[in-house]
Each structure stands twice: as C-alpha cells, then as structure tokens.
Design a protein around this nucleic acid. Sequence first.
DNA 1: GGGACATTGATTTTT
DNA 2: TCAATGTCCC
Length: 773
Amino acid sequence: MPDLLANLNPEQLAAVTLPDEPALILAGAGSGKTRVLTTRIAWLLQNGRVSPAGVLAVTFTNKAAKEMQARLSALLPINTRGMWIGTFHGLCNRLLRAHYHDAGLPQTFQILDSQDQLSAIKRLLKALNVDDEKYPPKNLQYFINNAKEQGLRSGQVEANDAFNRKFVELYAAYEAQCLREGVVDFAELLLRCYELLQHNEPLRVHYQARFRHILVDEFQDTNRLQYAWLKLLAGQHNAIFAVGDDDQSIYAFRGANVGNMADFEREFHVRHLIKLEQNYRSHGNILDAANALIAHNAHRLGKNLRTDAGHGEPVRVFEAATDLQEANWLIEEIKALINQGAARQDVAVLYRSNAQSRVLEHALVGAGIPYRVYGGLRFFERQEVKHALAYLRLMENPRDDTAFARVVNFPARGIGARSLEQLADAARLYNCAMFEAVPYMTGKAGTNLGAFVKLIEQMRAETRQSTLPETVEYVIQGSGLNAHYQTEREGQDRLENLQELVHAAAAFVSEEGYGLDAPARMLAVRSRAQALPGTDGEAGGTVVDADTPIEMTPLAGFLSHASLEAGDNQAEAGQDAVQLMTVHAAKGLEFAAVFVTGLEEGLFPHENSAMEQDGLEEERRLMYVAITRAKERLYLSFTQSRMLHGQTRYNVRSRFFEELPEGVLKWLTPRVAAGSRWTGNDSAWGRNWFGKPQAPAQPEAWAATPGDVALAQRSRAAEAGFRVGQGVFHTKFGEGIIVGLEGSGADARAQVKFGRHGTKWLALSVAKLQAID
DNA sequence: GGGACATTGATTTTT
DNA sequence: TCAATGTCCC
C-alpha cells in the first residue's frame, strides 16, 4: 500500500488527516489544493473511515471533476465507482433522473443551456405579447436565474413596483412553460434538486445517511443555492470538507458568494481552519508582488503565500504608447523567450477582456508565432450541432417547443413565421405542445407541418433498434441537415462537426471513464436497492436510490451530456502554441512566463467595477489571480492609448502598479510618478522604449500623432483638476467616475459614468463636478 | 426564404 | 471597430 502521506507538508498533512468534522481549508494559489482534496478522499477510504459510496465530491467544472477522478484512481488501486464525483449540476441531474417522479419531472426531461433558455424566454414574451423593449429577454433571463439562485420561486419573489411585478409574473409564466414542455434550465437543476431533498424527508434522510463525507472544491465560488444544497445534504452529522481561496473569488458577477466561507465557518461551528500558504509554483518576487497587492483588500480571511524557491527574476513592467506598440513589444519578448529555450505553450498572454485579443492575435499572425485563444464557441454550442441535437431532443420529447421551434423550418420546409404563429395560438388554445397542435392546422401550413411531424415520428421509428451513433448519423441525414450544409458555400466545417457529433456519440457509448455523473453510466452501476419507507409508491415501498439502474436510453443520456458538458474550447490543443486568454479563463492554470497586458485604469480595474459593490476588490483579486499564474517570469504592460469600440481611448496606468512593491519591479520603460504623468512633466518626454536613449521629441512631432494631441488635451483637462478614473459628484446624477476627458479651457469635457444614469459627456465649464475620493 | 442593409451594444462565464 | 441580431424587401 503506497504511503499517501509521504511528501505532504505539515499543513497539507493536517488537512488530509482531519477528523470527520466540518473543515475549511484556505488553499492559496499553487499550494497543492487538488492534491489535498484527493489525498483526503484516499486517506479516508484507506483507513476505512468511509466506503466509496459514502463519499460525495463536488466541483464546478467537468474538467475539475475529471481531474479529481483521474488523480484519485492514480492514488488508489480500488474501484472508486460507488463514489459520487461531479459538478453541482451533474450530481443534481443524476438525483433528478433517479427521482424524477418525486421531483415532479417527466422521465424524459431535457436540459436547456443558456442559449436555449434565452430562446425559450423570447418565445414566451412573444406568446404573451410582451414588449421586449420594455422587458428585454436577457434581463428577464438574469432575473429568473438570479431568483432561482437565491432559492426563490416566482411566488416568493418580492416585487415592490409595477416593473418588478411584471418580471415576477413573467417568471411564473416561464415556470409554467418549462413544466409544460418538460425542460429544466441550469439553475432549475439545482433548485429542483434542493426542493426534492427539502420536501421529501425519506429521501433526504437516506442521502444524509449515505454521504458521510462531502468535499467541495472552489468553495469561494459557490452561490447561495449551492450552499443551501450542501447544507441540506450534510444534515447534522456529515463532514463537509470545504476547500477554497477567498483571494481568488472572481465570480461574484455570476452569483458566487464568498460570504459562504464565513457563513460556513459560523453555521457549522468549524473548529478546523487550515491555511495552505506554502506555494510550489512561483518564484519569490512574483509572490511578493501578489501578497503586497492582495493586502490592499479589506475583507479577507487572511493568508500570505511563501515559497522555498529563491527570489528569481524581477517582475518586468513595460509602458507602451499604443496597443499596437504593446503588441509589438510582446512579440519581441516572446521571440526572445523562445530563443532562450521556452516552449511556446509555456507562455501565456492574459487580458481583462476578450476584445483585447484582436490586436495581439494580429501581431502574432504577422510574426508567424502559433497561438491558441481560449474561449469562444464550444463544440456542443455550434449552430449545426445544436440543430442536430434539437432533432434528437424532439424524438425523445416532442413537448420540447424550444427544440421544435429551432428546427421546424431548418432546413427550410416552407413553414414561415405566420404558420408558426398560428400553430403557437393553437397550442395555447388546446394547452398542448406545438408538436401536438399540428393536427389542428389546416391548409398549406397544415400540410407542411404535418410532413415535419411525420418526419420526426418516422425517424424515431426507424432508429428504434439502432445504436446511438447510428441514430445520430441517421438523423443528420434524414433531417436534411447534411444535404443542406452540402449546398451551403461555407458548410464544409459544419459537415465535419456533424460527423464529429457521430464520433462523440460513439465515444459516449463506449467510453468507460466519462465521469460518474453521466447518466448512462448509471446503467453500469450495480443495483443497491434499499428500502426507503414512505417515498413514492412505485415498487411497493421498496425505493431505489440514484445508484439503481434507471430506465434511460443512451440517447437521453447523450442529450444530458451534451447540455451539461459543452465540450472543449476550439483550437487544436496538441500544437505547441502561445496561450491567449482572459484572466478569468487562466484561473487554475500555470505558466513559466506570463504577460498581463492592458493594465490601465478603466480596463483593469475595469471601469464598470467602480459601480459595483466591492467591485474594486474583485478586480484586485483578479489581478492577484493573474500574477499567481506565473512560475518564473512575469511581465506587466500598459499603454497610453488604446483602440476600443472604434474609438481611441487614453488611459493612465492601473492603480495596481502603485500597490506593488517597488523592489520587485523592473521598469523596462522609465517609471513616471503617478499623477505627474499628464502635467507636462519633462520626464514624460524623454522616454526610451527599449533601453536605448532617445532624444526628446520635438513639440511638432509630439503634437503630430492623434495620441499626442489627446495627451496634450488631457494635460490641460488635468489642470482643471480632473483625471480619468477619478471619482466625481454631480448634483443631479450623483456619484460617478471619469472615464474620458477631452478639449481644453471652455471646451473641456469629461465623460463620466454614473450608476443609474449611465455615461454622459459633461462640459466642465457648465457641469458642477466635484472631485471625491 | 434569403440577401442586403440598419441597428445595437461591447467585462468577466460554468453549468 | 466589428460582430451579431433584427428588418425590410423582392
């Protein structure tokens, strides 16, 4: 038996061997978090503290779940099958599939992804004749998801004004529509699962008795509902082992509630709080920078990273005149790194927002450096793939109007908007699905729609005996998708993706290790039928738990899989390429060399964050995440001007520079004191970009470029006492932040972003702007 | 039904 | 700027 505990540092060891009680592990960046998590599980099993069936480990992403699974099987020779390792959504799906009846769902319920949800909402608004200008579908979607994540049904949401009452009313209508169609959105998976456990005592007692150990990854990212769900499962006696890092909480905007960490500590009377502060990733200077930066945040649980590695290289800082120049400098630096022996994939270029990648990509293409951009469309989100899945969904569940609307006229079958409106009216009249309303249609519309229904039914009949990949292949042909894309000029890629979908189906069927939460996998798990008194009447009191094989076609399993795991982000992973991504996307990753670009006020920290509660602190955590990605080399860069949304913007360097210790920084360009930058200080004129001395620019030349003109204008605006990023107060609009300045003297104007009033240009000579801190 | 044209909006994003 | 979405028209 291998010694699991060998090579753990004292804190890691303490965490792994904690008693069976609630515990909070504050795991700093690069501190061996996943190792502790997996070793903890292995240790519990090895010492007979729990059987595999008593373990539930939950993550946010499929990737993390898979990694945990893989590392666990590497640690332990035993079969880990009884264990539940998966994402919140995957595990909830699994529970709901097993107990669909108790949960009030049809057996064939389908999962809507965000795209599907939005189209369902648009369809709803249309059906109810709601003005989508006044009630934008996206806002309603946010409203609904937000409510669900607070655990609130439409009847429980408080609405104090007519506008919100309308939203609540629409939320209720949406709930009804989903129920009628047999579909659930992502938030619904969680909420419904929560309600299932909450209202069904025997079930709750059963699962509470089962999962003695619940382990949670990235605990700082949990939302209120996920926390409540965990609390419910844990009951009074189970041990939650929560691992997270409040300093890396960067998802408040999608409902993550760092407060869950403090709540957990309090509500569970956590006696074991362990900090993992030993960092195995970065050199000293990089950690010093990270520690100093994050110390500026007020609300922290408190943590300081340390390393045994030396100081290493200094953190290099570069100031560019324009985004173009920043990109060119980046290219030169990357080339140099590669010349020094770095692999391209060891180099990451990070940015705050996706829009920044364009100019960087352009430069990389020009330099002939292979690169890979993370983010963008994923496999199962592609139009052609979603079309094919919609046909499959319709065959599985004809009540799914979202799927129906998506493909009823794609490829074109002469079923226009008018026919569909009539059909929707009929469906409403008879309170049935659009699919079921087709027989009520007459005339040409009736004929065409009837043919569509026949097609679906025929495909379903024809594939009754087929394997899943055969079914998918059949549908791609039979639906006419294949023929359609063959005639389309740029349909080649789409055809390949459709073929890839057949492969994905084959892989889904044959693959052993696609994750325990994948529903089809349940078929392989041996029955553990247990007597659960009082639940659901079906088998005379003998009730099954979610390990029991349930009747589900491979197709149904595949459709869940497609919704819950959107697939890889584009680009061939194999190639040695420079990695481009947002800072958010970089969380959890590490690279030998990291470039953090666009470190400018307004961009990073982002101007919108100034309006958000604790927005700046979250931006700072984001910066902290960016810094701690680097192992050996860290570059920080910013520009004086940048093209954004078709306009050149003039920025000052990010305030974060002022929060980094001078001693670890190496300025590749002269450091200009903050604040003196725009006052016409001479030091700004004699800049030398690549360490080479450069003659001061001629005033004419200085004024010749657009950037410089604006620079001069800014200087004058600054004389009036204003600068970009400055907080101001306006008697009518309230507090705001300056995001732009132009003109001088009587023409000087400031662009100010106000909370409720949006962004406005104000003439400084007219508007009474007061500087605030 | 699809191409041409206008409009809009643009942090971050997993499930 | 530029992509995605919506609208108009034949």
